[in-house]
């Protein structure tokens, strides 16, 4: 049995046309996509970037330092007179 060398590009093209025509024929979907795009922009480009840094990823460079920091937090409750540094303080 032989297969046509053009079968795969033909399939890709058909899938492309399927999606393209589907998107073109959308009515309420256009508004919804705009909302999705705006929402993702606000979430990732504004909220995540400016307000939600990953604390351990930004404050420490290695996993070993992160583990030490968490272990310190876990054991510090029994080390009286030791204060927990807040974000921004040097660790």
């Amino acid at each position: 049995m032989s297969t046509s060398p053009h079968a795969a590009p033909g399939l890709i093209l058909r899938v492309f046309h399927f999606y393209r025509d589907g998107f073109r024929q959308m009515t309420v979907g256009r508004t919804l996509w705009k909302i999705i795009a705006l929402k993702l922009f606000v979430m990732f480009a504004v909220l995540k970037f400016f307000f939600f840094p990953n604390f351990l990823a930004t404050e420490f460079t290695t996993d070993s330092q992160r583990a030490d920091h968490v272990i310190n937090n876990l054991t510090r409750s029994v080390q009286r007179n030791v204060t927990t540094p807040v974000k921004g303080e040097k660790l």
């Binding site: 309420v28 979907g29 919804l32 996509w33 909302i35 999705i36 929402k39 993702l40 979430m43 909220l47 995540k48 307000f51 939600f52 840094p53 990953n54 604390f55 351990l56 990823a57 992160r66 583990a67 968490v70 937090n73 876990l74």
Partner: peptide
């Protein structure tokens, strides 16, 4: 479709919160 589009990715915010507000837990 309307419900899905408005709701999609709203759960991702919880993952942001894990990393920022709940870092000990997250680790």
């Amino acid at each position: 479709g309307v419900n899905f589009a408005i709701g999609v990715a709203t759960g991702i915010i919880m993952e942001f919160e894990f990393g920022t507000n709940w870092s000990n837990y997250s680790w």
